[in-house]
Design a protein around this nucleic acid. Sequence first.
DNA 1: TGGCCTAGGGATAATTTTATCCCCTATGCC
DNA 2: GGCATAGGGGATAAAATTATCCCTAGGCCA
Lengths: 140, 140
Amino acid sequence: MYERKTPLAIDCGLHLTREILNGKWKPSLLNAIAIGVKRPSEIQRLLPGATRRVLNVQLKELEEHGMVEKKIYPQLPPKVEYSLTAIGWSLMPVIDAMNQWGDANREFLETVISQDPKIRQTEKSACLMHSKMAVERRIG
Amino acid sequence: MYERKTPLAIDCGLHLTREILNGKWKPSLLNAIAIGVKRPSEIQRLLPGATRRVLNVQLKELEEHGMVEKKIYPQLPPKVEYSLTAIGWSLMPVIDAMNQWGDANREFLETVISQDPKIRQTEKSACLMHSKMAVERRIG
DNA sequence: TGGCCTAGGGATAATTTTATCCCCTATGCC
DNA sequence: GGCATAGGGGATAAAATTATCCCTAGGCCA
C-alpha cells in the first residue's frame, strides 16, 4: 500500500481540517450523504464527473477518518448505505460555508478561474441540484 | 508553463471553493494575512513547514484568483505587503469554520489521522498561535 | 449459457502538486 | 571582494493524487 513520505502537517485546525477534506470529491461526498443520497450507485449518479473507483477510495478514507459510516445489508444484489457520523455532521457547517461562498461568488470565480492560463477547459456536470438541496436542508 | 490537462470541475459552489483553496498552504496564507501577517518574510516565519518557493507560488495563485493584493514598495531593500481583497475577506468565514472545527476536534482528528496506515509521521510547527490569533480576531 | 444488477478492489499509468537546488535584483557596509 | 538585506523565480526531481482498465462475487432471468 501507499505510504506517505513527507510528514503531515497537523499544527493548526486549518491543517487538520484540510487533511480530512483533502480529496477532489470529499466535500461533495459528505454533502451528498448529508442530503440523503446514500447508496453508492446514487452517489455515482449525482457525481458523474468522478469515476466509481475514486468515489470508493475517497469514501473509504472518509470512513477511516470517522466521518461516515457504512452499512452493508446482507442482500443480493448487495445494498450499501452510507451515513454521516456525529463528527461528520459537525463538519457540515464547513461544507455549507464552502458551498454558499462558492455559489454566492460564482460569476466572479468562474471568470478568474477561466482566465487562469493553466486552465484549458472547465466542466459542469449535474451537481447543481446538489447545492440547491443543500440550501434547502439549511433553510428548511 | 504547466497546463492542466483534465477539465476542471466547477459545477457546484463546493468545487469552486475547493479550487480557490486548493493548495497545501492556501488556507494558512489567507489566515495569516487576515491576522495581519503581511510581509513575505513574516509569513515565512509563521509557516516554517513551507518553503519560500511554495509560499510564493501559492500567494501568486491567490493573487491571480483575486483573493489577495500585493503592494510593492519601491524601496531598497524591497518591501512587499499582502492584503486581502473584499472577496478574500468574504472567504474568511470559511477559513474560520475550518479552523474552529479542526481545533474543536483536535484530539479525535489527531488520533484517526495517526492511525491511518498511510501516515508515518506528523509534524507540528509553530502555527498554533495562528489559530489563537484567528480566534481573537473573530471574538474581538 | 450468457448477460444484468450492485458493489468492490488490484495494478498501473497519467496528471497534478510540492520539494529541492540554485541563481538573480540592487544597495550598503566591513 | 564578500556578505547581508528582502524578495523573486527557473528547472527539475520527487511525491501525492486521480484516472484507466479490468477482474471478482452471487443470484436472477431469458
